[in-house]
């Protein structure tokens, strides 16, 4: 760009023309300015990587395809889903989510205080010591049961607006609270159900696209999604209030059932229990089959 400018300045074009051609309109904000990979603007916040439109689209498609073809990678290291989330939510969806937060006192308090959910901000031993019916205890119990920690979240890189980047970060960190309050496990089946819920409730395209992973589920799981968890996700996603502006940190000592009622969330059937019962049934069926087979053999 500067090279181009110096070349223009050295040319013998009228000076006024040069001035009008090289000046950018004053009312166009830098945020909207187009740039190329050669003159990437400085980051808007720490860790920000400004992307061109082409890069954004390419990364969105790439991460979606890879995540679909390689769900195991998508599950174990969350980078693909994170990238997909960031590249597909801009320009419209993340702004809308931020605006939802701006409409409620608790959402505004979150945006103002910018709390982070990590193991250092939330003391897990303290949460475990809370009464059994509290949200904090439920959350800690869920983390222990699934063997996950709140520290596994990547930092947001590709959202241009600094405040929207925080909203994405907040969504990511609250994701475990959504798990805890719905009791859905981190296996693919539970994750897909929760993503369906999020897609409806938060309106993030990444969550909607992730539901495509239902195609990679086993047959029984798939029919369970269409019969039980899918409808649950839609009904609760619509019925619950938007979860992004919930100040979870302030609700830790509240009764979890009460919190669910306030938010309008109905617990789905316990997936762990269902799967266990299913396994039990199959095992029994197999045993019975074997027994009858034995019987046939004897007779």
């Amino acid at each position: 760009m500067s090279l181009l400018r110096s070349r223009i300045l050295n040319s013998n074009l009228p000076r006024e023309l040069i001035a009008t051609c090289t000046l950018t309109p004053p009312h166009r904000e830098p945020h909207h300015r187009q740039f190329s990979v050669l003159n990437r603007p400085p980051p808007n916040y720490e860790g920000h990587v400004p992307l061109t439109k082409t890069e954004r689209v390419g990364m969105a498609i790439g991460s979606a395809v890879l995540a679909f073809l390689n769900p195991r990678r998508a599950e174990t290291n969350k980078d693909l889903i994170a990238t997909l989330g960031e590249t597909t939510s801009q320009p419209y969806f993340i702004t809308r989510l931020r605006d939802t937060m701006l409409l409620t006192p608790s959402g505004r308090r979150i945006l103002r205080l910018r709390p982070r959910i990590t193991s250092s901000t939330l003391s897990l031993p303290h949460l475990r010591s809370l009464p059994k019916n509290t949200l904090g205890h439920t959350y800690a119990l869920w983390l222990d049961r699934e063997g996950v920690s709140p520290d596994t979240r990547d930092a947001v890189k590709y959202i241009d607006d600094e405040e929207c980047a925080y909203v994405m970060q907040r969504y990511r960190e609250c994701h475990d609270f959504y798990h805890a309050i719905t009791g859905l496990p981190v296996w693919r089946e539970g994750e897909v159900a929760l993503k369906g819920f999020e897609a409806v409730n938060l309106g993030l395209p990444m969550a909607g696209l992730s539901v495509a992973a239902v195609a990679t589920l086993k047959k029984g799981e798939r029919s369970r999604f269409w019969g039980v968890y899918g409808p649950w996700a839609v009904e609760n996603g619509v019925g619950a209030r938007c979860l992004i502006d919930v100040f979870w940190e302030e609700l830790l000592e509240r009764d979890v059932g009460e919190v669910r009622r306030e938010l309008g969330i109905e617990m789905p059937v316990d997936l762990r229990g269902v799967r266990k019962a299913e396994r039990e049934r199959r095992r029994k069926g197999r045993e019975e089959g074997e027994r009858s087979g034995d019987g046939l053999g004897i007779n």
Partner: peptide
């Protein structure tokens, strides 16, 4: 400010200056 902010600011009884 943007419309969501204005919407919210109309709902509170005071403290707009700070917000």
């Amino acid at each position: 400010l943007r419309t969501p902010d204005l919407k919210f600011l109309h709902t509170i009884e005071g403290g707009q200056k700070d917000e």
